[in-house]
Each structure stands twice: as C-alpha cells, then as structure tokens.
Amino acid sequence: MSVRRPFEYIGEAIRAGFDWAGGISLLLGRSLIRGVQRPWGIYDIFSQIVALGIRSLPLSTLMGVFVGMALTWQFGEALMGFGAKNAVGSAAALALVRELVPTLMALTIGAKIATGVTAELGSMKVSEQIDAIASLGADPIKKLVWPRLVASTVTLPLLNIYGNVLALIGGAFIADLVFDVPAEYFYETYIDELYPMDYISGLVKSFTFGLLVGLIGCYQGFQTKFGTEAVGISTTNTVVATSVAIIVFDFVLTTIFLPVG
C-alpha cells in the first residue's frame, strides 16, 4: 500500500492537471463562440480595459523604468571590463524587448490583473451573483468572462509597448549618468540593434500572456467553491497558475521565435 501511495499522488496530480487544462480550454472555446456574437458588449470591454489597464499604469511605469535601469547597469559593468561600454545600448536592447519587459510585465501586472479578476468573480460566485446573472436570462460567460478576456489580451501588449519605451528611457538615463555614454548614442545603438521580428516577438508574447492571464483569472474565479476562505484559495491558485503558465509559454514562444530571427 505504502509503495503505491506516491504513484497514486502522481496520478491524481496528472489527472487534476488535465482536468484544469480541459476546463480552461472549454472556457476559452465557449468565450470565443459566445463573445463574437452580437451584442459585442463594447461598453463592458472598454470598462474592463480601463479597470485592468489604466489602473496598472503606475506599476507598469515603475517596472519599465527600473528594469531598464537595472539591466543597463549590469550590462554596462560587464562591458566596461572589455572596454566596450559604448555597446551597452545594443546589448540591452534585445534582452529588454524580446524577453525581460514582456515577461516581467506579465509576471507582475499579469498576476495583478489575474488575481483581481479571480477575487472579483470568486466573490460574485460565493454571493450567488453569477447564478443571479444566469437566472435573469443573461450569459455569465458573455457578460463576465468575454470582456475581461478581451481587456487583458489587449491591455498587456499595450502596457508592454509602454514598458519598452520607459525601459529605453531608464537605460539611457543610467548609460549617460553612470557610464558616460550619451543618451542619444544609447538610443541610436539600442534602436539599430532591433529588427521588426524582435518587436513582433515581444508583442506576441505579451498578447499570449494577456490571454492566459485573463483566462486563468476568470476560470479560477468561476471555480471558487463556497465561503470567503474559498476566494483566498482561488486567488492563491491563480498566482501560482499564472506564474507557471507565463514561464512555460515564454519558453515555448522563445523556442519558436529564436530560429525565426
């Protein structure tokens, strides 16, 4: 019996993983089918973009500026040892645009968005508001999931663009102030290093992360059981699921985009 126990746990974990992935896929499918039907709920979507996106601007600003400054400083120190500090813009550009800004933005802002959505929908589930929407003849997926899914999918790429601009400004500031590399020169070498595919890679990543964040946030909210404690459990699960999903998908997308350019 004791020998079997670990295998049972592993089996249960794998089954739970498949259940979860199946549930998420089903929710995505239903959202896409019902979401594209009229009425499109433009007002709800716009409200969610404001709620999820505009309110994330302060955190995105901090993220963008400090990631740009920290990475430029690190690269600058390393390059100075080789007498190549002027290449700091080129070195920082790829790492920031292709990897760090989209991923860190998704891990912080994405987790914030996902947990907010889970807590909101979880509270609605516990207080029977989701049942009330259905009982009044409306579709909870269309009313609650679709606007949040679209908003997070649109918001994260936009915040990624915003974060990239701020990372560039933060990097230029450090390059000029710490390494005596003129900000204009940093800017030119930074931009020269980037090709359209680098921007596309970053944007596709943040688009995918946005979709994942919205989907996981909504799914966990809908899966909330009974009682206020359940909302806390769902929210914690959302942080874990979102972080793991972002890291795994980042790796998958990196392996896809690296050979492309």
Partner: peptide, 14 residues
C-alpha cells in the same frame, strides 16, 4: 428565465 424569476437567499444584488 424570462418567465421564471428567482430571489436568492442573500439577495445576490450586483
């Protein structure tokens, strides 16, 4: 659901 309405235990107001 157009013809059958439900009043929930806690009200479930939005």
């Amino acid at each position: 659901r157009r013809n059958v309405a439900m009043v929930f235990q806690g009200g479930a107001l939005f």
